[in-house]
């Protein structure tokens, strides 16, 4: 049962920050509410003041920035808006793949990408994708100013991020992938959320892998970068063998816990399978077999 609350409607990020300063622990940022209202209903959290950031005007758009080298996705942009955006289709189609399989259509119409990231649920799809995305950063705004935070600094623990009490996330910056880079996102879903997810970005020049970014989500409190696996791939020729080796490295780097999503060994196996599949698809896309 929902406890009574008041909804505030700030017009600017600064006003939102002021409200957060004013009400402190009694207030929280409210965007889509797909996670927040459920935890409030279940009595896991209780806030008397909800700061509805959807009333802030300039965080609703998706546009190109940095001389058209990056996408800026406003914090109030919903999953559904990303899923159906021609801008995203043209410049970051991987996001559409990810969004299409995220939760269900009602969550996507209400929920925002920024809200998902700030909630920092360990099984978040966007967290894994952003973690791997080369050059991705999150824009946090408060009365103290604006700062950019990298994903691996942002995700601290389950349900815990580097966002300060008085900050709101105002945008997500995603650099466009350079030519010769391909991306893929693979996950295994048993319950409502992924058991394991793997995002991979691979650059190939000629027959050589120039860079690899691999993030594994859902198995720990926050997604992790499989750096050993990434390094092993540098200079290699794309193919099943190096991908299997990298997948093995990504699996050994995991520190999963056994739960209803799977046992420790099973999660490692899923990391192996999904990493190999993601690398395979990302490199095919990098080499233009498939464009994404």
């Amino acid at each position: 049962m929902l406890k009574p609350f008041v909804i505030h409607e700030p017009r600017t990020p600064q006003q939102a920050s002021e409200l957060l300063n004013e009400y402190g622990w009694d207030a929280t940022v409210y965007a889509g509410g797909t996670e927040l209202l459920v935890v409030m209903k279940e009595g896991l959290a209780s806030y008397a003041h909800l700061i509805n950031i959807k009333t802030i005007s300039d965080i609703h758009t998706i546009h190109l920035t940095d001389n058209d080298a990056a996408l800026r996705i406003g914090a109030a942009v919903t999953h559904r808006a990303i899923e159906t955006s021609s801008m995203i289709a043209a410049h970051a189609p991987l996001l559409i793949e990810m969004e299409r399989s995220l939760a269900n259509v009602r969550v996507r119409t209400m929920g925002t990408l920024a809200g998902n990231l700030c909630f920092a649920e360990p099984h978040s799809d966007p967290a894994a994708v952003c973690m791997a995305w080369p050059g991705a950063s999150f824009e946090l705004t408060s009365t103290d100013g604006v700062r950019q935070v990298l994903p691996d600094e942002f995700f601290i623990d389950l349900f815990m991020t580097a966002r300060q009490e008085n900050e709101i996330m105002t945008a997500i910056h995603l650099p466009l992938l350079p030519p010769g880079m391909g991306s893929a996102y693979h996950k295994f879903v048993l319950l409502e959320r992924p058991s394991v997810s793997v995002a991979a970005f691979v650059s190939v020049a000629g027959t050589t892998i120039k860079s690899a970014h691999i993030a594994v989500g859902s198995v720990g409190p926050v997604p992790y970068r499989a750096t050993a696996a990434e390094n092993m791939l540098l200079g290699q020729t794309p193919g099943d063998e190096p991908y299997r080796a990298a997948a093995e490295a990504a699996a050994s780097a995991a520190d999963p816990v056994g739960d209803l999503y799977g046992s420790v060994e099973y999660k490692r196996q899923l990391i192996r399978v999904l990493t190999r599949q993601a690398l395979q698809q990302a490199s095919e896309r990098a080499m233009g077999v498939e464009r994404l």
Partner: peptide
């Protein structure tokens, strides 16, 4: 026009 879960959608929204 978009589907929402009305059980967690505050009417004021």
């Amino acid at each position: 026009g978009v589907p929402v879960d009305s059980c967690v959608y505050p009417v004021l929204k």
